[in-house]
């Protein structure tokens, strides 16, 4: 609480600049992550238009990667990917199987 601004330094009237949520990371919500295989990608952008978290990065009208800071790992992108037989996006466990080595 201590580093949050007091009322005297907040802007008037419950207003913020647009788009500040970009600073809030939701990537740690993931239990699975989409992994992109560029060599299979046909840049149809179905994944991009279907992503609820604006986490498919598109540059110059081409898919270029995934914003793992915000992707919550829902899997919609992989499901909607039309590439066959192997999809250009696959869901993988977020972390490897770590076990107690004792």
């Amino acid at each position: 609480m201590s580093e949050k601004p007091g009322w005297k330094s907040l802007p008037e009237g419950d207003v913020v600049k647009a788009g500040t949520a970009a600073e809030f990371k939701t990537g740690d919500w993931r239990s699975e992550r989409p992994v992109w295989f560029p060599e299979r990608c046909i840049h149809c952008l179905f994944c991009w238009i279907s992503c609820p978290d604006s986490s498919i990065i598109v540059k110059d009208q081409k898919m270029t990667g995934i914003d793992y800071d915000h992707c919550k790992g829902c899997g919609i992108c992989a499901k909607e990917c039309p590439v066959k037989p192997q999809k250009a996006l696959e869901m993988k466990p977020e972390r490897g199987e770590e076990t107690c080595q004792k």
Binding site: G19, A21, A22, E23, F24, K25, T26, W29, R30, C44, L45, F46, W48, I49, P52, D53, S54, S55, V58, Q61, D67, D69, H70, C71, K72, G73, C74, G75, I76
Partner: peptide, 22 residues
């Protein structure tokens, strides 16, 4: 879609909707 992708995305990531929310 290519044309749409050049437009401003109205939402950033970092919102708190459920994963997979429509």
């Amino acid at each position: 879609l290519k044309e749409l992708s050049t437009r401003k995305d109205p939402l950033t990531g970092g919102h708190r909707m459920c994963p997979g929310c429509g």
